[in-house]
Design a protein around this nucleic acid. Structure first.
Length: 563
RNA sequence: GCCCCUGUAGUUCAAUGGAUAGAACGGCCCCCUCCUAAGGGGCAAAUGUAGGUUCGAUUCCUACCGGGGGCACCA
């Protein structure tokens, strides 16, 4: 539809003004008084052509009026060309909305897109802040998959380092049961105890380093201990991931890359990318213009560091999957680090895919006391539990009015949805303020609003029986037209969210759609309408429900049929 | 000190350089003999400051002021 109208405008401009190669952009005006489509083209080329915007608009008006899909054209404001399409044209375009609800077939022959997210540390429970990378990453991956990309999702675990030495020492000294019987909380308690004791006992840190060194050298007992800790942590994390509708194609810890770093260190030295720094460490230096300080690749004592592991990781991914892109979903505090990482692989001269640090802001706490309660992190699991509990309370408070047969299932959906939606409805680049009442909001712009709207729409559809796609519609009510235009924007919002890696674009779209639907629902009778309006309205209702369901799922949120 | 991000209603957030800057929460007022009131409608309320770029700036540029983050052996 756009391209045909663009052609018409281009031809008119070429004939009347002699300008070629003009890109005509279309907008869907938010205000219904501006029509279904609008273009600011006359404003944009006014100077180039040497005519006023209104004069230019006048020239393209006749050509547009000749289009059979167009009902009315108007010049408005400073020179906008506003178009009202015929109901037939609008309704005809709805087929594409239905298609957008189905995932595109995976383009197997296309190089994959790798999305790395979540990145928890082993032996520590997931904190509330982990929700950010985890659900932003999952929704970015979901969007890619839905749009036909060959997507590979990876969880990059922090499963290596001196913390295992500390834990081994702590268990040995104070543990009251074998590691295999420990819970994650037990491990955390041991870890905390270690740090408390280490303040007054210097030998502990040394013992921990020694234990980790032995682990690195392959000590069998410590290796088994390490494996148990990994297993215990992963089992608990899997439960939470499952509750969040998060899953990964691959889970590779840093330990996985232990034997893959030396070749890269050698390569870097050979290419003179890695040079010796002041205190004997191996470093990478960057150009003056880049304004970046040097980065350490190997510590002065010969130990590797996160950069070493990330180089190995990047190398492994490139050789294993030959991806078109690698997206690292990591918070903004590591911006400089990622610039250094990317600059380093550039210097190494590797054949690189598109590498992108997909940044998100940091989580702050509205309640100041939470951030100062050191060592006492707010666990993601606790927040999820609280969210479900609050949802259950809300459901209970509705008494007889609830229609669901499964209040527990609904509470689960609403709790998870509310929490996740709070994260995904916001521009990821902004810092996020965690506040219980906001994070677990069930009113207004929230997951339960989407869920309620969906349930409402499904309820209508189930009462209506089969809804057939209408052939001809003579006229549209204001609300029908508005809803229809919003529905037509679905595919665009998916594209925008995927290309910009911004899930909030989709979240905001879904909220808009629900507002339009509820407004329509309030003003226009559906089941009680006369035919053919009844069928058409049921059709719009069904399509709305499909779009909400599809979009919400991409954001990892489930929607109920009844609530 | 240097570098990056960021300042929008009372609060939390939107707005490919476009029309009268949108929502939500909170406040005030309406709407269930009507398809789910977990809803809808209305009112009050905002672009940190000063310049610049242009037909047009919340958006781009400069300075200043405020907030966050980073700056070599933690990840």
């Amino acid at each position: 539809m756009f391209s045909s109208l663009s052609n018409t405008v281009q031809k008119a401009l070429s004939a009347e003004c002699g300008v070629e190669d003009i890109v005509v952009t279309w907008e869907r005006p938010h205000d219904a008084s501006h029509g279904d489509l609008a273009t600011p083209i006359a404003l944009q080329i006014s100077k180039k052509v040497g005519k006023t915007p209104r004069e230019i608009a006048e020239m393209i008006l006749p050509a547009l009026e000749g289009e059979e899909t167009i009902e009315k054209v108007e010049i408005a404001g400073p020179g906008y060309v506003n178009i009202w399409l015929t109901p037939t044209a609008l309704v005809g375009a709805l087929g594409s909305v239905r298609q957008a609800c189905t995932a595109k077939v995976k383009r197997e022959n296309e190089a994959p897109v790798i999305v790395e997210y979540s990145q928890p540390n082993i032996a520590k429970p997931l904190g509330i802040h982990h929700i950010l990378s985890t659900v932003i990453g999952q929704s970015v991956a979901n969007l890619h998959t839905h749009l036909g990309f060959n997507t590979i999702s990876i969880n990059h675990l922090g499963d290596w380092g001196t913390q295992f030495g500390k834990l081994a020492v702590a268990l040995d000294k104070w543990g009251d049961k074998p590691v295999t019987e420990c819970s994650l909380d037990d491990l955390l308690a041991l870890y905390v105890q270690f740090h408390e004791q280490a303040e007054s006992d210097d030998t502990l840190e040394d013992a921990a380093r020694e234990a980790f060194r032995k682990l690195e050298q392959g000590d069998e007992e410590l290796r088994a201990f390490w494996q148990s800790v990994v297993d215990i942590t992963m089992a608990e994390m899997e439960t939470i991931y499952s509750r969040l509708h998060v899953s990964f194609d691959h889970t590779h810890g840093e330990s996985f890359y232990e034997d893959k770093m030396q070749p890269i260190i050698d390569e870097g030295k050979e290419k003179d990318v890695f040079v010796e720094g002041e205190n004997g460490a191996l470093i990478v230096e960057f150009s003056e213009e880049s304004n970046m300080p040097p980065a350490i690749v190997v510590k002065a004592d010969g130990a590797t560091i996160y950069l070493t592991r990330d180089l190995a990781t990047t190398s492994y991914r490139i050789t294993t999957w030959n991806p078109q892109a690698i997206l690292y979903i990591v918070d903004v505090a590591q911006s400089l680090y990622f610039q250094q990482l990317f600059a380093t692989v550039e210097k190494l001269g590797w054949d690189l895919p598109h590498l992108e640090h997909v940044v998100f802001g940091r989580m702050r706490f509205a309640d100041k006391s939470m951030s100062t309660r050191k060592g006492n992190i707010l666990k993601l699991e606790e927040v999820l539990d609280e969210a479900e509990k609050r949802a259950a309370d809300v459901i209970a408070s509705h008494g007889d009015r609830i229609q669901t047969q499964d209040p527990e299932g609904l509470a689960t959906m609403m709790g998870q949805g509310a929490l996740v939606y709070g994260v995904l409805s916001q521009n990821r680049k902004m810092d996020m303020v965690f506040d219980w009442d906001k994070a677990l909001s069930f009113d207004g712009n929230s997951a339960p609003y989407l869920q309620y709207t969906h349930a409402r729409a499904r309820s209508i559809v189930s009462k209506a029986g089969d809804a057939v796609e209408p052939n001809t519609i003579d006229a549209l009510s204001d609300k029908e037209r508005s809803l229809l235009n919003t529905l037509l924007g679905f595919e665009n919002s998916l594209q925008d969210a995927q290309t910009s890696l911004m899930p909030h674009i989709l979240a905001n779209y879904l909220f808009d759609l629900c507002q339009d639907y509820n407004s329509f629902y309030n003003d226009d009778p559906i089941l009680k309408a006369e035919e053919p309006a009844r069928s058409f309205r049921v059709y719009l209702t069904c399509l709305t429900a499909d779009v909400i369901k599809t979009g919400a799922q991409l954001l990892t949120i489930s929607v109920p049929d009844r609530m």
